[in-house]
């Protein structure tokens, strides 16, 4: 069952006196119940903005976001609409994702209150994310970054979300904690039947936990497909470049191939295919027309 549908989403950041920045420029995406979708891309490609739009934290300029059949309305000053409480998010920075002045038990209890759950206690949730039961009376400063991220996951899960979003939840953690926290998120989301949209720039982690991968470049999804398929047979030149940039621990001493150039300014994207200035196989058509099709937005893979 499709849980979340993002269709042709555009999000612009407007600053007076400057050209509008199209952080998300017509992206489409779906997440089903029990499915883990990994959204990958370089910094500044609009992944986080997409996630925030799905939560209603930034308003969509155009396009549709549908969650469980209803539209996602942006969060204003009113309370979040009941129908949207099923979308919960784990943020990037573990040092600012918990209120430093409140006990973690109370913060997890906020999540339980959303679900109307009176039988589960914060201690149960701490246990589920792999922390000792007795910690609920402590304050966030007593925990490490990885532990804090587990607490943030516990709080989000306490609300029994149908869709959990992780906005680079592991990028601020050290390498030993990254894989653990990521697999924990997957296990907990899948076992509760929720969908998980996992945003990361770390392909090797996404490969472990995601069922499906969506590759984002400069505000657009350029390739989607089952993880194994994309991994084994990347089709978009950008996906190939991303995969090629992963260092191989084979002892051969080869440095990974680097993609030339930088991400262009989203306020002034290149005409035609957004990737053509950096693309090793760019053709004339790439400079002229934007490839607007799925699952691979590349003229080399134009559907018949």
């Amino acid at each position: 069952m499709t849980l979340l549908t993002v269709d042709d989403l555009v999000v612009e950041h407007r600053t007076p006196g400057r050209p509008a920045v199209r952080a998300v420029a017509g992206a489409g995406l779906t997440v089903s119940s029990g499915e883990v979708v990994g959204l990958v891309g370089e910094s500044g490609c609009g992944k986080s903005t997409l996630a925030r739009a799905v939560c209603g934290l930034v308003p969509a300029t155009s396009g549709n976001i549908t969650f469980q059949g209803g539209p996602v309305r942006p969060l204003g000053l009113r309370r979040r609409h009941r129908s949207l409480l099923g979308i919960q998010m784990v943020f990037q920075d573990p040092y600012s994702s918990l209120n430093p002045r409140r006990k973690i038990g109370a913060q997890i209890a906020d999540g339980l209150a959303v679900a109307g759950d009176t039988t589960t206690t914060p201690a149960d949730l701490l246990e589920r994310v792999g922390l000792p039961r007795g910690f609920e009376g402590r304050h966030p400063h007593e925990f490490s970054g990885g532990q804090r991220q587990r607490i943030a996951i516990a709080r989000a899960l306490a609300a029994r979300p149908a869709l959990l979003i992780g906005d680079e939840p592991i990028s601020a953690l050290d390498a030993s904690a990254q894989a653990k926290v990521a697999t924990l998120m997957r296990e907990l989301a899948v076992s509760s039947g929720a969908g998980l949209l996992f945003i990361s720039h770390d392909l090797s982690v996404v490969r472990i936990i995601a069922d499906r991968i969506a590759v984002m470049y400069l505000g657009k999804i350029v390739e989607t497909g089952p993880t194994a398929e994309v991994w084994a047979n990347p089709r978009h030149p950008y996906t190939k470049a991303l995969l090629g940039a992963i260092p191989a621990a084979d002892g051969a001493g080869h440095l990974p191939a680097e993609l030339a150039g930088d991400v262009p300014d989203p306020a002034d994207p290149p005409g035609g295919c957004r990737f053509h200035p950096r693309c090793p196989v760019a053709m004339d058509v790439c400079r002229a027309k934007e490839p607007d099709f799925t699952p691979v937005a590349c003229w080399l893979h134009e559907p018949a």
Binding site: L57, L75, L77, R79, R80, F91, Q107, D110, R155, A156
Partner: peptide
Amino acid sequence: EFVLSGRLLGFSAWRSLRLDVLPN
């Protein structure tokens, strides 16, 4: 982010102000 998290958990603006913002 913790203020946003609270709002995502359905805190009213008033509750968010009282619990998350003012004490900090």
